[in-house]
């Protein structure tokens, strides 16, 4: 079955799996499966490897990412999810991938050389002042860092770089915030913390795909 457009922009579906249209056809970076439809190539987006894909599979209606957007991606790691976000924003979009670890940044640089809308930035997301001279204002902030102070990092970066009316996506890992508390209680705490600063527009628990994780979408 050929993939048809999903209700979310940039995503295609064949009812069981989700795909993105490959901006650079023929280049596969993570051994993902592809479906070919003439000159167009679709890359499969695995919800077990990416929290963004899990969020879409859970039925989120608006993730805020559109064509030609500029994205600040905190915790880019090896670049699995960023490569799909780069498909969604297409060639005229721009993604800053930020990670403090040199080991994973090495892989990400090789990916960025193949896709020229990905930008590697080796810096600690908790200190925006160390990389503010290398980025620009953005439409989307996506964060997936699994740190104890991840909410503080998110608020700091949103205040600094997100434009007014832009979206922020926060993946919360309850087990890194506090192992002794119940995950649901932590999600509520994070949500109330975010509600003080922004408006929360979506909140979903990513249960069958990721254990003890949730994703919160905010609008500035």
């Amino acid at each position: 079955m050929k993939p048809i457009p999903h209700k979310i922009f940039g995503i295609y579906t064949d009812k069981r799996r989700i795909y993105t249209k490959n901006v650079f056809p023929g280049k596969i970076h993570f051994e993902e499966k592809t479906v070919k439809d003439g000159p167009i190539e679709y890359r499969e987006f695995d919800p077990r490897r990416s929290k963004l894909a899990a969020m879409i599979m859970k039925g989120c209606t608006n993730i805020g990412i559109r064509k030609n957007d500029v994205v600040l991606y905190l915790g880019s790691s090896h670049g699995y999810t960023p490569s799909f976000v780069s498909d969604m924003v297409e060639e005229d979009g721009f993604i800053f991938g930020i990670d403090p670890a040199p080991r994973v940044m090495r892989d990400f640089v090789f990916l960025a050389e193949k896709r020229n809308n990905l930008v590697p930035v080796l810096a600690d997301a908790f200190h925006p002042e160390t990389y503010m001279d290398r980025v620009c204002a953005v439409d989307i902030v996506y964060q997936d860092v699994a740190q104890r102070n991840q909410t503080a990092i998110f608020v700091k970066n949103c205040k600094m770089f997100l434009k007014k009316g832009g979206y922020g996506l926060l993946a919360v890992k309850a087990r890194s915030i506090d192992i002794t508390k119940k995950p649901k209680q932590i999600f509520i705490e994070v949500r109330t913390q975010l509600e003080k600063e922004f408006t929360v527009i979506d909140y979903r628990i990513l249960e069958p795909f990721e254990k003890d994780h949730c994703m919160i979408i905010i609008k500035k």
Binding site: F94, P120, V121, V135
Partner: peptide, 16 residues
């Protein structure tokens, strides 16, 4: 964008 891209790649490669 083109300048940001090339500058950042150079800085990151050096840092690595």
């Amino acid at each position: 964008f083109a300048k940001l891209y090339s500058k950042n790649i150079v800085i990151t490669k050096k840092a690595i």
